[in-house]
C-alpha cells in the first residue's frame, strides 16, 4: 500500500490510489472513453441543507420521526454485544419504536457502538452518507467521546464528532442496555424539540468534515464491483 502516497506534490492527488485517477479506457467495442472513478463510482454531489418548511407540520412530523427510529444494524465495536439483549425479552426496545434495519438506505439512526478503527470509519462514513436525511447518530461508549481505553492507539479515532455530527453520546464501557434505552429517549427528546439536525450540520460543514476524514483515511479505495 506504500504506492498510494507517492504523488505528494499535488495536494488533491495525495490520497488518490492509482485506480482512482482519471484514465482513458477502450471499451469492448473499440471506442475510447474517459472515466473518472471518483466521479463515476462515488457520489460526488455535496449534501444540501434541507430546512423544514412549515413549523407546525414539522412538529408533528418530528414526533413521527422520534417514535419510529430505524437503526442500522452495523456493529462497529464491542458495544454491539449489548444490541441483541436490547432487542430480546429483557429490554425489548421495539416497545419504543426502535427497530433494526439491514440497509443504510432505510435507516434513520446509526449506532456507533464503541471504538472506531480507521478501516471501519471509512465504511461508517459511507453508510452514513447513504442514509437519507434526517438522520441521527448515537455514539456508544467512552471510546467515541475521547478515545476511552484506546486513547493512545494508532488505529482508533479519539473523537467521533470530528468525522460526523453526533446527536447523543452514551458514556460508559460498556454502556448497559438500560443506558442505551435512556440514550434513545434522549434522542427522541431532541428530535421532538427539533434540535436533531445532524444531517444539515453535516451538509453545512461538509468540507470541514471531509478534510478531517481525509486526514486519517489515506486509502479511499472502495471495493471493486462488476455491477
Amino acid at each position: 500500500m506504500s504506492d498510494i502516497n507517492n504523488n505528494t506534490n499535488n495536494k488533491e492527488d495525495k490520497f488518490l490510489a492509482e485506480e482512482n485517477k482519471k484514465r482513458t479506457v477502450i471499451g469492448p467495442d473499440g471506442i475510447e472513453f474517459e472515466i473518472d472513478p471518483l466521479k463515476d463510482y462515488f457520489c460526488d454531489q455535496k449534501p444540501e441543507v434541507r430546512d423544514p418548511k412549515n413549523k407546525v407540520v414539522e412538529k408533528f412530523i418530528n414526533w413521527a420521526r422520534a417514535e419510529s427510529l430505524w437503526v442500522l444494524g452495523f456493529g462497529t465495536g464491542c458495544g454491539s454485544i449489548e444490541i441483541p439483549p436490547l432487542l430480546t425479552p429483557r429490554f425489548d426496545a421495539a416497545r419504543f419504536g426502535v427497530q433494526m434495519r439491514a440497509t443504510p438506505r432505510q435507516s434513520s439512526v446509526i449506532i456507533i457502538s464503541g471504538y472506531l478503527a480507521v478501516k471501519t470509519l471509512k465504511r461508517v462514513i459511507r453508510s452514513y452518507e447513504q442514509m437519507q436525511s434526517p438522520k441521527y447518530v448515537l455514539a456508544l461508549g467512552s471510546c467515541t467521546i475521547n478515545g476511552g481505553m484506546y486513547y493512545d492507539s494508532y488505529n482508533t479515532i479519539n473523537r467521533l464528532d470530528y468525522y460526523m455530527p453526533v446527536d447523543v453520546y452514551v458514556a460508559g464501557c460498556m454502556p448497559r442496555p438500560e443506558a442505551l434505552l435512556a440514550g434513545f429517549n434522549k434522542l427522541k427528546e431532541r428530535i421532538k424539540a427539533g434540535r436533531a439536525e445532524g444531517a444539515n450540520e453535516y451538509a453545512e460543514k461538509f468540507d470541514w468534515y471531509k478534510a478531517n476524514q481525509k486526514k486519517i483515511i489515506k486509502d479511499w479505495n472502495m471495493p471493486d464491483y462488476n455491477w
Binding site: 478501516k119 493512545d152 492507539s153 494508532y154 488505529n155
Partner: peptide, 14 residues
C-alpha cells in the same frame, strides 16, 4: 478483517 483492530499488542507494551 481489520475493522476492529485496536493495536492491543502495541498498547500492552505501554
Amino acid at each position: 478483517v481489520g475493522y476492529l483492530h485496536r493495536g492491543f499488542e502495541k498498547l500492552m507494551e505501554r
